[in-house]
Design a protein around this nucleic acid. Structure first.
Lengths: 192, 192
DNA sequence: CCGGTTGTGTGACCTGGATCACTTTCTTAA
DNA sequence: TTAAGAAAGTGATCCAGGTCACACAACCGG
């Protein structure tokens, strides 16, 4: 618990300057949760009230097309944030799912508390602005990559960016992130 | 000039509550610019110092792959913002281009001024957080659409979301936004 | 009003990657 | 330890969309 708060505080202090007091106040709004491998954090159709800061483990945020094809929007590793941000920001039902690829521990923050903290502490608003800025830029890069590059190039890019995924995440999930079929991904690295 | 400031102020007031004084102070940091059809606003390799608020006209932010294939990251219509945000935020050289599809008038804001204003006025930081939030969610939706849907579905989605693009923007640019070839797009709506 | 650039339509052909159908490992829980 | 599900590999086939090659607009600027 204490360790959890420390990780969170360090993470936030990298982009915002908060006093120790403010950091503790901020941290007091987060609720620790643990999940087992395979457990669902957000289910399509749910009301979405929280976002999650990952302390340990690995999650995926994904969309299921006609009950069959899964596409992964984002993996979430330690110190990453995840949720269905569309649903969270617009107060609508979840259209994506979030679940745990491995056992995981998270800190949850409610939408209402985030907004409250942003109002109360200017530097907290600053932090969340920068966090989203980074996410936005990453999403734009991925869009370009999806349009410009073929599956093999995308695969190599991904491994270069997040080598840890290679061993951590089953290949069919990596395929679902890259936007190719399991079979194609398998061929990509067996037939060079 | 005055009219420009009014549009900007109204735009910002929709998500942040600023006094008239603050709004004027904010507006004083924007510089009006006009461009002719075809003029370049940001060229690949440039240092990027500004972002742009569109008053009139239509721009595109695009990436050119091996000097040949163009992919459009974003169209920018009145009241939209555009820049190479990756370059702007990380202070690196532009990797994308921005130019004018039609004659256009813009308001430019420097990165330094944005950061200064965000520091000075909490509500300005609030505004920019929400602006990026919206952009982030839109980018995520487009990612999913690119992975889930075929070209025809994406085309119909785009027209539904921004019907004005149909008549305003040449078809080969719409193709470059959708991530299909000109020829394929042409076939999409002639062979139903 | 005319010649050139910029857009658009269409046919013929090619190919990356999807799909289907099986087989072969890995994992994991009892 | 072993059986059953989950993950991964592989061949055969198919198709959406790319590429190439031309033919026509339509829209300027001089």
């Amino acid at each position: 618990m204490e360790a959890a708060a420390v990780v969170l505080k360090e993470h936030i202090s990298k982009t915002a300057s908060l006093t120790e007091e403010e950091l503790s106040y901020l941290a007091s709004h987060f609720k620790p949760l643990s999940f087992k491998k395979g457990q669902v954090v957000i289910r399509e159709g749910d009301k979405v009230e929280h976002e999650y800061f990952v302390l340990s483990g690995c999650l995926k945020a994904f969309y299921i097309n006609d009950e069959v094809k899964m596409h992964i929007l984002q993996f979430a590793m330690p110190t990453w944030w995840t949720s269905d941000y569309n649903a969270l920001y617009t107060q609508t039902k979840a259209t994506i799912n979030v679940d745990c690829i491995t056992d995981a521990t998270l800190l949850s923050l409610s939408n209402a508390d985030r907004e409250k903290l942003c109002r109360e502490i200017h530097q907290v608003e600053h932090f969340f602005r920068w966090r989203t800025n980074r996410g936005y830029v990453a999403a734009q890069k991925r869009l370009l990559s999806l349009m410009n590059n073929d599956a093999r190039t995308r695969y190599e890019e991904l491994l270069q960016l997040y080598p840890e995924l290679y061993s951590l995440v089953p290949k069919h999930l990596i395929a679902a992130y890259l936007g190719v079929s399991r079979e194609t991904l398998s061929r990509l690295y067996h037939t060079r």
